[in-house]
């Protein structure tokens, strides 16, 4: 663990140093990299704080039984449906889906539903799908959703069942 930390700090400071030097020396490539970094970081900052506040509120207000009933082992096919609907309204990239998935899992959602949620949040976020259709056509988006969504649900169920037998659990990063 200590080594991991040391490597992390070395990478972060090396990167920061590289960017600072690039600005001082007027190195184009480094400046471009730093612009990429800030663009993407700002884009994430618009969403991430809200997402984590909502996760916090979810953790204190939503009862475990509620999650278990709708997304847990006994939820059947409805659990998958809820996962897709929830994913459809998720904003931001898939990196937001992981902390949410962890939260749902720790409250009793089953693995198949969790993987469906993660997969679906990548492919069928509603605002994104509308945006996609406006550039590539409604047919393109429809074919994509009709093929990918069933495959995501089926593979998530298989992977979830398999890992449940192996007593697999999602972990909270330390």
């Amino acid at each position: 663990m200590k080594w991991n930390r040391a490597i992390r700090i070395a990478v972060l400071s090396g990167y920061a140093l590289f960017l600072i030097l690039s600005w001082i020396l007027g190195y184009d490539a480094g400046q471009e990299v730093s612009r990429n970094f800030t663009t993407f970081a700002l884009d994430m900052l618009k969403i991430v704080p809200c997402a984590f506040i909502l996760i916090g509120l979810f953790e204190v207000w939503i009862k475990r039984e509620t999650v278990e009933r709708h997304l847990g082992e006994g939820s059947g096919i409805m659990g998958y449906l809820w996962a897709v609907l929830l994913a459809g309204t998720t904003v931001g990239g898939v990196y937001i889906a992981f902390p949410i998935a962890y939260s749902l899992h720790s409250k009793g959602a089953k693995l198949g539903v969790i993987f469906t949620y993660i997969g679906a949040s990548a492919i069928c976020r509603i605002p994104m799908a509308i945006f996609e259709a406006s550039f590539l056509g409604i047919q393109f988006t429809t074919v994509r959703l009709l093929v990918s969504l069933p495959l995501v649900i089926i593979t998530s169920k298989i992977l979830g069942d398999y890992l449940t037998r192996r007593k697999y659990k999602l972990s909270q990063p330390l």
Partner: peptide, 11 residues
């Protein structure tokens, strides 16, 4: 809730 949010974010 806000404590949980901050802790999870930092981690």
């Amino acid at each position: 809730a806000l404590r949980i949010a901050a802790k999870r974010f930092v981690s």
